[in-house]
Design a protein around this nucleic acid. Structure first.
Length: 113
DNA sequence: CCTCTGACCGACA
DNA sequence: ATGTCGGCCAGAG
C-alpha cells in the first residue's frame, strides 16, 4: 500500500485529502476518524495549514462537520475557498455548503469499499 | 527543555 | 437547546 511511509500524522492527512474527488467535500473529523484519531480533528485542520506546502492537498475541499468553511479565513484572507468550491459545482451560501449532505465524501466509506 | 496554541469534535450539565 | 471542557499531535517561542 502506498502512503503511510512517513510515520507522521500529517502525511496520512495529505494522502486522504489528496484523494478527495472534485466537487466533493469532507470534514476534519471524518479524516481524523479514518486515521483512527477522531479526537485529533484539530490536528487535521492544522495539517491543512502545513498543506500549503503541498500542491496536491485541496484544503478548500475540507470543512468542519457543520459544512461551514471554517478555514476560509486561512485561505489568503479572501473568500477564495468558497470561490474554488463553487467553481467545482459546490453550492455555498455564506460559507455554508447547502447540499453538504449530498456531496459529503467520507474516506471511511469511499476508501473502504 | 518546557509551555502554549491551533482550520475540530463529542460529551456533559 | 446552549454553553463549557477535555482530548489528541505537532510545531514555534
Amino acid at each position: 500500500m502506498s502512503a503511510v511511509d512517513k510515520s507522521g500524522f500529517f502525511e496520512r492527512v495529505y494522502d486522504v485529502a489528496a484523494k478527495i474527488p472534485e466537487g466533493r467535500v469532507t470534514s476534519y473529523g471524518a479524516i481524523a476518524k479514518y486515521l483512527g484519531a477522531a479526537k485529533s480533528a484539530r490536528m487535521v485542520g492544522w495539517a491543512m495549514n502545513a498543506s500549503k506546502n503541498r500542491d496536491d492537498v485541496p484544503a478548500h475541499r475540507v470543512v468542519n462537520r457543520n459544512g461551514i468553511l471554517t478555514g476560509k479565513s486561512h485561505f489568503g484572507g479572501s473568500n477564495a475557498m468558497q470561490q474554488l468550491l463553487e467553481a467545482e459545482g459546490v453550492q455555498i451560501h455564506e460559507l455554508k455548503i447547502l447540499n453538504f449532505d449530498a456531496i459529503f465524501w467520507d474516506p471511511i466509506i469511499e476508501l473502504n469499499s
